[in-house]
Design a binder for these strands. Sequence first.
DNA 1: TAATAAAGTGAGTAATCACTCACATTGTTA
DNA 2: TAACAATGTGAGTGATTACTCACTTTATTA
Lengths: 217, 217
Amino acid sequence: MDKIYIKQLLESEGDEVKLTEKKAAILVAAIEIFAEKGYAATSTSEIAKQAGVAEGTIFRHYASKKELLLAIVKPGIMKLAIPYFASQVVEDVFGQGNNSFEDILREFIYNRIDFAKKNVPMIRIILQEIAFHTEMQQALKSTFLSEVYPKVEELIVDLQQKGHIKSVPIDTTIRFIITTVLGFILHQYIFSTNATFNEEVEVEHVIDLIMDGIQKS
Amino acid sequence: MDKIYIKQLLESEGDEVKLTEKKAAILVAAIEIFAEKGYAATSTSEIAKQAGVAEGTIFRHYASKKELLLAIVKPGIMKLAIPYFASQVVEDVFGQGNNSFEDILREFIYNRIDFAKKNVPMIRIILQEIAFHTEMQQALKSTFLSEVYPKVEELIVDLQQKGHIKSVPIDTTIRFIITTVLGFILHQYIFSTNATFNEEVEVEHVIDLIMDGIQKS
DNA sequence: TAATAAAGTGAGTAATCACTCACATTGTTA
DNA sequence: TAACAATGTGAGTGATTACTCACTTTATTA
C-alpha cells in the first residue's frame, strides 16, 4: 500500500487530495491496523508508531480518531457501492445497450472482483465497522439509493417487460443477485484462506446459478 | 431476554448449566450491550452496572472479558451453524427421506427464520465479532465441517446422481444456497428497518430463485 | 447448628486511552 | 530575506480500562 494508492482511493470525482508524506503514512498505517484489529481495538499511539509519526501529527490532520476512520471509509463505501464509478463503461452496463443481461452480469462480476482484489483491507474495515457507525450506514444507503438502485431498477423493469426475466419483485431480484455475487466475492477474495480455484470457471457457475438456478431442467 | 432464554441458549446437548440470578443478569446485560456497541467498545463496568451487579462479580464467574464473550458466543455459533440442532427433525431433513429438495429447502429456510427471529442480538454479536476472534472462526469452521457439511454433501451428491440438480461443484452449490438464504434472512430479520412484508410469499420467491434462477424459461 | 464452600462486593491499581498544547521545523509568499 | 502559515513534535493530562483482593454475605453440607 503506497501513497499513490491512497490518493486514488480517497479522491472522488475530480477533487484533488493533497497529501504530505506524513499524512499518507498515517492513512496507510490506519488502514492496515483498522483492518487487522478493528477500529475500537486500535490506538492512535499504535497508528502513529507504525506510521513513523508523532501522535500529535494525527490530530493535526484529523480532529478525532473517528474522523480519521470516516476519512478512510467514506470514499471506500462510495467505490464499493457504485460499480464503474467515474468510469466510461457506465453507459455500457446500465445504459440502453443491447447486451444480454448475462453479459452485463458478467461484466459487473469481473468489475467487482477487480475492485475486491485491489481493496481487501478497505473492504474488511467496511464490513467490520459498518454495524457500529451510523454515518457509514447512511453513506452506504444514500449512495446506493441515489446512484445504483434507480439504474438497476430501470434495467430490471426493462428486462421484465421484454420477457427476459421473471416478474419476481424488483427488490427481491436485486437482493438475490447482490447476495449471490457478494457471497462469492467475499468468500473467495476477502475471507479466503489460499485455496486455488479457476476464476473464469467459477464466475460462469455463479452466472449460471443466478440465471437458471440449481435445478436440472 | 430472560433467564430461561439464556439457559436454553447456553446449554448444548444435555449438559445442564447452573445459573445464579446475578450470573444470568450478567449474561443478559452482556449480550445486549455487546450486540449494540460491540465487544471492544463495551466496558465491564457498564455490563456490571446494567446487570445490577458489582464489577468483581463478573470476574468471579469469568476469568476475563474475552471469556465472557466466548461463553456467550460459542453455543450461539453451534446453534447458528447447525440447523435443527438437538431436534428430531434432523433425519427428516438431511436423512434419506423421500421429500423433494424444494421441500427440504423450505423447511431449512423456515427453521433458520425461526432461529433468527429468536436470536437477533446473538446473531449481531457473531457477525460483528467473528472477524476479530480466531476462536470464533475456528468454532464456526469446525462445527460446520464436522456437523453440517458432510450431511449436506451427501444430500447434494444424491440429488445430482438422481439428476434432480445440476452437476455444479458441491462447494459452489452449497455456497450459493447458503448465501442466498443468509442474504434474505440477514436483510429481513437482522438488518431490517421495519418494512412489512409477506413472509410466505417472499420465502417462495427465494426458493424459486434458488431452484430456477431469474431467467424466464 | 457449626463448619465450609460458593457467590457477591467495591475500593484500589497500574496501564492505556484519546486528545492537548507550547514549541520546533519546514514551506510559501511578499 | 523577512514574515507568515502550515506541518510536525512529544511530554503531559484527566478519564477510563480490565482486573485484583481482602472482605462480607449467602448457600450447602456434616
